[in-house]
């Protein structure tokens, strides 16, 4: 177990050490504080996954690493895309591209709630002044064949995070269970910084020589992508790419584990999973273009789920997924 995670972690001590309770000044400072906090708690601070995904959960560091018996602790920012949420940068809090902060710890430590609350203090939320609540919200991802129990966390009536104990991913029971925390960064930051319109939020320090607001960075891209997502994306091409990604995912996994060139056992779970992620995002794009009917929707979601399950099946056949190379089997 990484130091700091699990029993005996001293939440208040870390906060005193890192930030006192000064208010952060910018969007990026909040991210930096979260990174520092979770690093201090022993998480591997990872980088965003280099593909288009709908949420931080899709990062293999969560989806795949929540499977199998090996301990894991990771924290990272993940840019997330939800094409249907595009509002041309005009809506105060809806974006088709936004950031999630994601923490995954396996097995879930007994003091995960306290660790989480510590992270809120770290970004300047004073527990004595705010009303923090854990409100039932069970999580389910039909595309990932995954579900868990947990809460949405409210701060003064606003949802600031999703807190989930994974029970199943890709159709596999999670044992041990991972604890997952997901922070919607823009919304959380707007709240902490007291900003009403996301585009007005300071991105870097407002005192910096070149002070940038969120809108300076993203207003234009929101416009461009909103137009493309809703009206321009070539749906024939998207449909074709969906089929191709699906076919490639299956094809990758049909290869025998043993690599003829190196003679090694190489199960290609991650490359296959990349194709699954692709298919999922292509589906989201098609959905935003409004070309998928209600009945077809279920069928497409089912197809992505099938891929996710195949990838999960493959991952538990790998070393990271708990496969024991010496005995050549998956431990019970």
């Amino acid at each position: 177990m990484a130091p700091g995670i699990g029993k005996g972690a001293n939440v208040t001590g870390v906060i005193a050490m890192s930030t006192e309770t000064t208010k952060p000044k910018s969007f990026q400072e909040i991210i930096l504080r979260l990174q520092a906090y979770w690093a201090a708690k022993g998480c591997a601070v990872m980088q965003p996954y280099d593909m288009e995904v709908g949420a931080g959960t899709f990062h293999p560091a969560t989806t795949l690493r929540s499977l199998g018996s090996r301990p894991w602790a990771a924290a990272y920012v993940q840019p997330s895309r939800r094409p249907t949420d595009g509002r041309y940068g005009e809506n105060p809090n809806r974006l088709q591209h936004y950031y999630q902060y994601q923490v995954l710890i396996k097995p879930s430590p007994p003091d995960l709630q306290d660790l989480y609350l510590g992270s809120l203090e770290a970004i300047g939320i004073d527990m004595d002044m705010h009303d923090i609540r854990f409100v039932e919200d069970d999580w389910e991802s039909p595309t990932l064949g995954a579900w868990g129990l947990g809460w949405e966390v409210w701060c003064d009536g606003m949802e600031v995070s999703q807190f989930t104990y994974f029970q199943q991913v890709g159709g596999h029971d999670c044992a041990p269970v991972s604890g997952e925390l997901t922070y919607g960064l823009e919304r959380l930051a707007m709240y902490v910084l007291g900003i009403d319109h996301v585009m007005e939020m300071p991105y870097n320090d407002p005192q910096a020589p070149i002070a940038l607001k969120y809108g300076d960075v993203f207003r234009q891209t929101e416009e461009e992508y909103s137009r493309w997502n809703f009206d321009v994306a070539d749906t024939d091409m998207l449909f074709r790419h969906f089929e191709e990604a699906e076919a490639e995912c299956r094809a990758i996994l049909e290869h025998p584990a043993s690599d003829p060139k190196t003679g090694k056992r190489i199960v290609m779970a991650h490359p296959a999973y990349d194709q699954c992620i692709k298919a999922s995002h292509l589906f989201n794009l098609l959905d935003a273009r409004g070309v998928i009917s209600v009945t077809e929707r279920q069928a497409y979601i089912g197809r992505v789920r099938t891929l996710a399950k195949l990838c999960a099946d493959a991952f538990v056949q790998t070393e990271a997924g708990g496969y024991d190379v010496a005995s050549a089997q998956v431990p019970a």
């Binding site: 105060p92 809090n93 004595d128 002044m129 705010h130 009303d131 923090i132 609540r133 701060c155 003064d156 009536g157 606003m158 709240y191 009403d196």
Partner: peptide, 28 residues
């Protein structure tokens, strides 16, 4: 009317302001 789970030094002013803000976003 909202029901908080905590008493604060400012008699809930911060909490109420936050809730009002969330409500305004919802109602917009």
């Amino acid at each position: 009317i909202t029901v908080a789970n905590i008493e604060t030094k400012d008699n809930g002013a911060t909490i109420l302001a936050g809730n009002q803000k969330v409500l305004a976003a919802r109602l917009s």
